[in-house]
């Protein structure tokens, strides 16, 4: 009933405004629909979907859907830096609509190999050999699971490796832009980027986390040197 009256209001509004404005508004909506989940994911925004704006879908569901679509759309953006194909946009949208969760994408899809065992993220961060584990990717992968016997804190990211890499990129990008809720601290060439997220990204593990009953965490810290990631973890 409410939805019907809304549609009637929209139709009457379209009759009143000039045709060129109506065309411009419709074009804007067409562009907004496929871009909205991607913008949310790339920049950590929380733009509402058209469905939620018209009242057809609750706002909460919009947020969840965006989070679920994270890996899929991010890797696609990496693959297609070339001109965007409209049919590709449509098929992307179609594939998201029926299924609740996109299949997890591989790290190889998200990162670009720029040398022997060297990988670059879309934000320009480099992952290369190093650390006790032999490679930085292996080193940060430790933060995908808890180490309850480890003294002190151990931040655990709640998501896949690709989602972790996306969150790392997002942290550094926002901190470099000096956006609200971010910080950037330099110490002897090592730069520590920190950024908050609007929802929990993981929990506090390790002995300290266990003692505090594993509270949820909303911040990410990334230590970078010469654009190469040394480590990253939620805190």
């Amino acid at each position: 009933m409410n939805s019907k009256s809304q549609k009637e209001t929209a139709a009457s509004l379209l009759k009143v405004i000039p045709a060129k404005w109506a065309v411009a508004i419709i074009a804007a909506i067409i562009v907004y629909v496929p871009l909205q989940p991607r913008l949310n994911q790339w920049f950590g925004w929380n733009l509402p979907s058209v469905a939620s704006l018209t009242g057809d879908e609750p706002a909460k569901a919009t947020t969840k859907k965006n989070a679920d679509a994270k890996p899929s759309s991010a890797s696609k953006s990496n693959e297609s830096k070339a001109p965007k194909d409209e049919s590709d946009e449509d098929s992307d949208l179609e594939s998201k609509t029926p299924e609740k969760k996109s299949p997890p994408q591989s790290v190889e899809d998200y990162l670009t190999e720029v040398g022997k065992n060297r990988f670059e993220s879309p934000a320009g961060l480099i992952y290369k050999p190093g650390s006790e584990e032999g490679h930085r990717l292996k080193h940060i992968e430790r933060h995908l699971s808890d180490m309850p016997d480890r003294p002190g804190s151990h931040g655990v990211f709640d998501g896949s490796m690709v989602e972790f890499l996306i969150a790392i990129d997002d942290t550094v990008t926002r901190a470099k832009q000096k956006l609200k809720g971010t910080s950037m601290k330099e110490d002897d060439g090592d730069i520590a980027y920190e950024a908050g997220f609007d929802k929990p990204i993981g929990f506090l593990g390790g002995e300290t986390g266990k003692r505090k009953k594993n509270p949820k965490v909303r911040k990410m810290k990334v230590i970078v040197r010469d654009d190469a990631v040394i480590t990253a973890f939620p805190l």
Binding site: G152, S153, T231
Partner: peptide
Amino acid sequence: KYFYIDDCPICSQGL
């Protein structure tokens, strides 16, 4: 077994 001096003053999460 972890023998450590303190929490890392740089990253705050390492040992």
